[in-house]
């Protein structure tokens, strides 16, 4: 419980960045913490439980995104409407960046959040995702490239 009190905010922020919505993030975080609570005995005494909880969190977000994608494909006869980007919104580069981040696949989004929000190394990110370092490198590279591509002219002020 001390762990939740100490790291709850950070975990919720990570979940919010990966999920894109606050309510979903809270729900996923509760599920992840419940799962970790159930299997708390698997954590070695004295070791930091955060990587274990973070891994559960990432797996849950990815699984949930996949499930929702299937449900959306089943239930939606036409593509969901996307809000039209207003000229004012276009200049708000960070807001556009976040919009584009949400449109990435769940795995690529998780890689970018863990690498650039949690500041995890490639090896730590690979451990959290349960994949190889090479996969993390390629996913991060592709995710950033896609962001650059989608941002298009909005990157001009950045000199890219």
């Amino acid at each position: 419980m001390e762990f939740v009190a100490a790291r709850g905010d950070a975990l919720l922020r990570t979940a919010a960045l990966m999920c894109g919505a606050r309510q979903d993030a809270e729900d996923v975080l509760q599920t992840a913490l419940e799962k970790a609570y159930r299997h708390w005995g698997r954590i070695e005494p004295g070791s930091d439980p955060e990587p274990y909880v973070r891994r559960i969190l990432v797996n849950l977000v990815i699984s949930r995104s996949r499930r929702w994608k299937v449900l959306k494909e089943i239930h939606m006869a036409r593509l969901p409407e996307r809000p039209a980007a207003s000229p004012e919104h276009a200049v708000e580069l960070r807001g556009t960046l976040m919009d584009e981040l949400r449109r990435l696949g769940p795995r690529q989004r998780a890689v970018l959040v863990l690498r650039f929000w949690e500041d995890l190394s490639e090896a730590e990110t690979a451990q959290a995702l349960g994949c190889s370092v090479g996969t993390v490198k390629s996913q991060a590279s592709r995710g950033l490239a896609r962001l650059r591509e989608r941002l298009g002219t909005n990157l001009a002020p950045l000199g890219r």
Binding site: L12, A16, L17, L29, L33, R94, G95, F116, L147, L158
Partner: peptide, 28 residues
């Protein structure tokens, strides 16, 4: 400023006001 730094800033702004509810432990 590069894209990675901008992304970091964007994420920090996005979750700046996000805090875990006090009832998180009880909810779990």
């Amino acid at each position: 400023m590069d894209l990675e730094s901008e992304l970091r800033q964007a994420m920090a702004e996005q979750v700046a006001g996000t805090t875990a509810p006090a009832s998180l432990v009880a909810d779990v």
